[in-house]
Design a protein around this nucleic acid. Sequence first.
DNA 1: TTTTAATATAGCAATATTACGATATAGTTT
DNA 2: AAACTATATCGTAATATTGCTATATTAAAA
Lengths: 108, 108
Amino acid sequence: MGASKTEHFTEKQNQIATIAKALGHPARIAIIEYLLKVNECICGDIVNELPLAQPTVSQHLKELKNAGLIKGNIEGNAICYCIDETTFDVLKGYFSNIIAVTKNQKCC
Amino acid sequence: MGASKTEHFTEKQNQIATIAKALGHPARIAIIEYLLKVNECICGDIVNELPLAQPTVSQHLKELKNAGLIKGNIEGNAICYCIDETTFDVLKGYFSNIIAVTKNQKCC
DNA sequence: TTTTAATATAGCAATATTACGATATAGTTT
DNA sequence: AAACTATATCGTAATATTGCTATATTAAAA
């Protein structure tokens, strides 16, 4: 197959999985970390930073944007990208809950 | 291609990406949530819970285990699975830092 | 208006993932 | 030992992802 059976899972489960999936590639983690370092930048800056071609970086940016992890603002002919905190908050909250619940459990 | 250029990124970046990737599928999120609900269980319980065949569930469990997100203890002929808090702590810490840094930044 | 700059999209090849049926493995029960 | 239970592994088909070159798009600059 290759296709996930998304329809069998809850909306929340699919949401978390989608966000996690977007972070499931080292290049996209590197992009997030670069944005964290420089606050905001344009696609070309990332191309200069990473060992990837411009279309590849553009594609990774698209996926991060679709997942809500970054925002992009048009500034002239360039696009200014930066981290979208909101979605990271969702993740943090989700994992905090897992940890909180697990703390009270005994593992086999 | 299809292969990630893992060698170009830091160990930490690859580590986070690997963990996130393991969570990047709704079935694996569903497994985590089920474990959270029942504390611990065997593979067969998950097979009864999810609309997936036994080998598929087994494969998902393997990936979660490889990523360090769950632990498996042999109990007779069954294997008792439960959440491994440690790895979730790594993620939570990583995202907390991103949020903390981003809070002091101005987005474009 | 032509050129330059910055991104995005199309198309493609290589590889990875997902899911399952069939089967193997390992422990338990009878 | 034979049957049963629980899980893992093999093999495979369908689909998704990754990364690139070539090209399109859009806006600024000359």
